[in-house]
Every structure is written in C-alpha cells, then in structure tokens.
Amino acid sequence: MKTFFSFIKSTLLGGILFLLPSVLLIIILTKAYSILEKLSEPLSERLPESASGFNYGILLTIVLLLTICFFSGLLIRSAWVNKRISKLENTVLVNIPGYSLIKSITADAVRAKSDKHLLPITIRDGDSWNIGFLVEVGDKVSMVFIPDAPKYDAGEMRVVASENVQKLNISTKDFLKSIKIFGKGIIHHMD
C-alpha cells in the first residue's frame, strides 16, 4: 500500500513539474494578449467595420504582439541585454523545473547557437553506452545528465571523462521522442 501511495505521489509531482513551464507560458501569453487588447482597442474602434463583421481588433492585437516579439528578438541580440538575461536565467529561471530543457528544445527548433544548449550524447560506460545530455564540458571531465526512460525530466547527473562523451547527430526534439520509446532509433545517429 505504501508503494502505491509513493507511486501516486511521484506521478502527480512529475505531472506538475512537466506542466508548470507550459502553464506559465500560456498564462504569460494570455496576460500579454489581454494587455495589448486594451491598448489596441482605441485604434481598432477607428477602423472601419467589415461587411462580414470581422473584428479587426483581434487582428490588430495579434500584429501588435508579433511586432513586440520581433523587436524583443532584435533587442536580445545586444550584448548588454544578453548579459542581463543570462544573469536572470542563472539566478531565477534556473529554479523553474524544466526551464533548461524547454530552452534547449526551443533553441534547437530555431537552430540557435547557445553554450547552454543541452546536446544529445552517448557516454561510454565500460563495454556499454548510456544516452544523455551534455550539460557542461571541462578540459578533462564533463557534466552529463542521463535521463530515466521513458521520462526525460528525471534521471541522474554524472561527471565523466570528456573522452567518453560522443555527440549525437540528432535534434533535441527527436532525441526526446527517442527517449520516450526507450532509445529506439538512437543507434542510427551515432557516428
């Protein structure tokens, strides 16, 4: 009975930790949309009403949100802003469960180069190999995260000899899919 309650507890906590970043993103975008909707309302009232009754206010709000995202993207390219964001990530955002993994997946999806990108790897362990993520590279040793399949948000951290780490030629997104199916397809991406 104790094992059953332990299973229920760990499953619920795992679900919460998985959903938290997604829910936070939805809340932030919803809040941003509602703020921009109020700002664009005076402008949308001046736009002509279409014959089909189309609400130009929604379109104006979405365009405004996309414009802000675009200029934020331009702003993030500056060294000063990058330094501030890096500080925020290292002090605050790193405490949000799953943030690093989501950031890595997003960076992989947009093909962004990042030194904080979690790279899919294999780790030699005697006569066998483990799959995982490269967290940090040192001169002689590297920090790796080895996920527990089929979950990728739990696992163990290991310090291993850098010579035992081999990068995989696979996107983070595809790597995570492979972990969900117990590593199927990984061997085709090994050099």
Rank of each mutant, 00 (worst) to 15 (best):
M157P: 06
A161R: 10
I96A: 08
N82I: 12
T172E: 03
S142W: 01
M157Y: 14
S128V: 09
V165F: 04
P120W: 00
D127R: 11
F175D: 05
K173R: 15
S86W: 08
G57C: 03
E156V: 15
S142G: 00
P48S: 04
W129Y: 14
V165E: 09
R158F: 12
A79D: 08
N55T: 12
K113N: 14
K177T: 10
I170S: 11
V165T: 12
K173I: 10
A149W: 05
L134P: 11
L74N: 15
K87C: 15
Q166T: 15
V137N: 05
N169R: 15
I146A: 08
V165L: 05
L134A: 03
P42H: 00
I68A: 05
T67C: 06
D115C: 09
P147G: 01
L47Y: 01
H117I: 13
R158Y: 07
R77L: 07
I85M: 10
A79H: 13
K151I: 02
N82F: 13
V94H: 09
K167A: 09
V137E: 14
E156T: 15
T172P: 03
R111I: 08
S142H: 00
K113Q: 14
L60G: 01
S178P: 13
V92Y: 11
N55W: 03
E89V: 13
P42D: 01
Y56R: 07
E49L: 08
A161N: 12
H117N: 09
D115Y: 14
G98Y: 01
I76S: 09
L168V: 14
S72L: 07
G155K: 01
S128L: 04
F71K: 14
K116I: 09
I68F: 00
K87E: 14
I96F: 07
V110E: 08
V92G: 04
N95K: 15
L60Y: 00
E89D: 11
S72D: 10
E136I: 03
A149R: 01
L43K: 00
F145W: 05
S142P: 00
G138K: 04
E163L: 07
